[in-house]
Design a protein around this nucleic acid. Structure first.
Length: 557
RNA sequence: GCGGGCGUAGCUCAGUGGUAGAGCGUCACGUUGCCAACGUGAAUGUCGUGAGUUCGAAUCUCAUCGCCCGCUCCA
């Protein structure tokens, strides 16, 4: 598959082929297409919805149903707006931006400073604002020195008094510059007036709760599912008889007003997440982080991303967000570039503590097992029989670590749509297979992992007579009754039917032929190899189930 | 958000001011005994949308929406 990156049509040609197939076969369509679409929104067609459901189901089974230490959750999409205050999303999503009309640079307004040039005219008491001021990027020495040079030159030119080596600086967002940007020189230009007024880029989706759309009713569609988990941490802890370490998993939609949705479904404004918050003791966080990082990477490998396009990349320390102690990305080399499928982060106790502070609710965990072990150390006889002192010491000890503490959390946060897209890209294969005359012909086949394939088996009568359709239908019905996604087709030549299933990614085709009537066997044709073997018709269900339903992940104990 | 390119049948695209096209796919009938077979026939278009210029617009102009590329952004 690696050679596909060197496809003569180029990487974008490859992506276009994949997109065309997805549209043609009914995997993914643009949302509200008949009205011209809507940027950043997508609809999953009949094949796409099965594929995506299978991705989610595989994740849910592997992370929740097959483990004792993780439970599920389905929180509301709209939460109390204070949640986003606490999580930092409201401020984080509201970075005002400033564009330089000259250089096309974009700056974060809150990261710009301005050298405030002023004068003290003779005979006046206080300083007077000068005409020009000089913006620079904070925490960037070069930018500051550059602005300082420009400011000195200007001061000398117009004869500002008292201008020295340490001129006052003000934040760009100060009231002093409001409506006066015509007099501010941008960081990378020499003339004033090239900076735009700061614009708010609100990446949160606002909405209103209740019939009256006033500001008091303002709420937001969640930008991530994680906060629903943190907010329910105590509920889960209090009702589920769980001990650390344990996790809460959630699948669900999230919404971000991305500035520039692009690359098919990769960056959508409405998307689905699969997130785990795994709570543990602070001292065990590092080892759980490594455990989850490796396990989640392996999950993608186990579901078909076996090429070297899948990568696990540890973030550099300077790349880490302020709340994360460690972070790794599971990345995939899409035709349009290497991009993130899932991030695994050690978020420490940042989130629970933030909610503890903002909500006023206690988010700590008390380790009664450890206490039971150590309680004897606080018996009265350890305090010379002073019961009161013993009780006080015990109460004090119970209120802090190692007995009571706010758990740390490891967050494996994956994008369902991104994973689905990666599976589609990896599966897209062009090979050459002989036709009925033995001539080699190009074939397009979606080599989806059988567990993820939208249809598990297609059942055909070889020809539409001699009772073959009726027998094939019986097999089809048996497959469906067994819970297998089965597809019946009797139209046209069987070769064409096979090839159609190849494009849909169906791993097996079962064909009823003349011999079926004699010995009760059918052929099973393998999607990837085109090999056929005869098996008993009443063994089809077991055969398909054995080859498609099972979890491939043997690493999970 | 900025700059460039593009938008015609389900898909890929041709069509530069004068009757809306091709290939593939889809459907029907016949044929067809295992890999996109063949024959015959058929259906499918707000030419992205809206406005303007013109006797006449898929074609020219403007706006708008969407897609692609670069920049930006990615808490």
């Amino acid at each position: 598959m690696a050679e596909q990156a060197d496809n003569p049509n180029g990487p974008y040609g490859l992506m276009e082929k994949i997109v065309a197939l997805c549209k043609r076969r009914g995997f993914i369509w643009q949302s509200s297409e008949i009205y011209g679409g809507l940027n950043g929104f997508w609809d999953y067609g009949p094949l796409g919805v099965e594929l995506k459901r299978n991705v989610k189901q595989a994740w849910w089974e592997d992370t929740v149903r097959r483990r004792d230490d993780i439970v599920g959750l389905d929180a509301a999409i709209i939460m109390n707006p204070n949640v986003w205050e606490a999580s930092g999303h409201l401020s984080g999503f509201n970075d005002p931006r400033v564009d330089c009309k000259e250089t096309k640079h974009r700056y974060r307004a809150d990261q710009l400073g301005v050298i405030y040039a002023y004068d003290v005219p003779e005979g006046e008491d206080g300083p007077t604002q000068a005409e020009l001021h000089f913006a620079y990027v904070q925490d960037n020495a070069e930018s500051f020195i550059n602005a300082l040079k420009k400011a000195r030159k200007y001061a000398k030119k117009v004869g500002l008094r008292h201008f020295n080596d340490t001129p006052p600086t003000l934040p760009f967002l100060s009231a002093e510059f409001e409506g006066r940007l015509d007099y501010v020189v941008g960081p990378d230009v020499d003339v004033p007036g090239t900076l735009t007024e700061p614009r708010q880029f609100n990446l949160m989706f606002p909405t209103y709760v209740g019939a009256l759309a006033d500001e008091d009713a303002k709420a937001y569609l969640r930008p991530e599912t994680a906060q629903g988990i943190f907010c329910n941490f105590k509920n889960v802890l209090d009702t589920q008889r769980l001990k650390l370490p344990f996790g809460i998993a959630q699948l669900g939609k999230a919404f971000r007003n991305e500035i520039n949705p692009r690359n098919y479904t990769f960056r959508s404004r409405e998307f689905e997440q699969m997130e785990i918050e795994f709570f543990c003791r602070p001292e065990e966080a590092d080892q759980w982080y490594e455990y989850w990082r490796d396990l989640r990477y392996q999950w993608y490998v186990d579901h078909g991303l076996v090429s070297d396009k899948l990568r696990l990349r540890d973030h550099e320390p300077d790349e880490l967000a302020h709340y994360a102690r460690a972070c790794a990305d599971v990345e995939y080399a899409f035709p349009f570039g290497v991009s993130e499928l899932e991030g695994i982060a050690n978020r420490t106790d940042y989130d629970l503590k933030a909610h503890q502070e903002h909500s006023g609710r206690d988010m700590s965990y008390f380790d009664d097992e450890l206490w039971a072990e150590k309680a004897s150390e606080f018996a009265a006889d350890k305090f010379d029989g002073d019961k009161k002192a013993a009780k006080q010491a015990a109460a004090e000890a119970k209120s802090k670590a190692p007995y009571r503490f706010v758990p740390h959390v490891i967050e494996p946060s994956g994008g369902v749509d991104r994973a689905t897209l990666a599976f589609l890209c990896e599966a897209y294969t062009e090979d050459e297979q002989p036709n009925d005359k033995g001539e080699m012909q190009q074939r397009v086949v979606m080599k989806l992992h059988p567990r993820l394939a939208p249809t598990k088996v297609a059942v055909f009568p070889l020809v539409k007579r001699d009772g073959m359709p009726a027998t094939a239908r019986k097999i089809h019905d048996a497959c469906r009754s067994a819970g297998l996604a089965s597809f019946y087709d009797e139209k046209g030549a069987v070769g064409r039917r096979y090839r159609r299933q190849d494009e849909a990614g169906t791993p097996f085709c079962v064909t009823v032929d003349g011999q079926t009537g004699e010995d009760g066997t059918v052929t099973v044709r393998d999607r990837d190899t085109l090999d056929q073997q005869r098996i008993a018709a009443d063994a089809v269900v077991d055969y398909v189930r054995a080859h498609t339903g099972g979890r491939m992940a043997e690493h999970i104990a």
